[in-house]
Design a protein around this nucleic acid. Structure first.
Length: 160
DNA sequence: GCCAACGTTGGC
DNA sequence: GCCAACGTTGGC
């Protein structure tokens, strides 16, 4: 039997809406509000126990701030059915849901944030397929290869 | 199927 | 707050 290989993903959140501190407080959180098909399809590929790099976007120091893990398989995002929610989608019905989410569980904060600026300095090693720093990419859920994850996490122990 | 208009993302 | 880049919508 081949061992289960945990995949790594990067998930963006605006800290003013939901930060790594918020995740630490609640422990586990349904990752609602993703309304992009590519991001949704990545969540559908996730397995319980996969690693998540928690990225803060649209803030003074964008970057990776913590580690989390996937705590559920993908299931319909309930906010799509709620007319009072900003994520309401009138074209979605419980019989025919359009958007999924996964639960994400807090693991730990990084010793220090790995900033976007620092990540960019390793663009060559990370490669063309790393969507986070691909020009114009706004994908909020994206896969991270084992080599990319190793590199990113190794930066944590580099003192600055 | 084309494409202009619009809304959103997210760095700066 | 600005704006480049992108995805979606809808008229035709």
């Amino acid at each position: 039997m081949s061992p289960v290989r945990r995949k790594t993903w990067l998930m963006k959140s605006e800290p003013s809406a939901f930060s790594i501190d918020d995740l630490a407080r609640v422990g586990s959180e349904p990752w609602n509000g993703v309304r992009n098909y590519q991001a949704r399809n990545f969540m559908r590929q996730m397995q319980i126990g996969d690693s998540v790099l928690f990225y803060h976007s649209n803030c003074p120091r964008p970057g990776i701030y913590g580690l989390a893990e996937v705590a559920s398989l993908a299931y319909p995002d309930p906010t799509q059915f709620d007319p009072a929610s900003p994520y309401y989608d009138p074209k979605a019905t419980p019989a025919q849901p359009r958007w999924d989410l996964v639960d994400v569980r807090y693991l730990r904060h990084l010793r220090r944030p790995i900033t976007l600026d620092e990540i960019r300095r390793h663009a060559d090693a990370l490669g063309e397929d790393f969507a986070l720093i691909r020009k114009g990419s706004r994908l909020s859920v994206l896969p991270v290869s084992p080599a990319q994850a190793r590199l990113l996490l190794s930066l944590e122990s580099v003192d600055v």
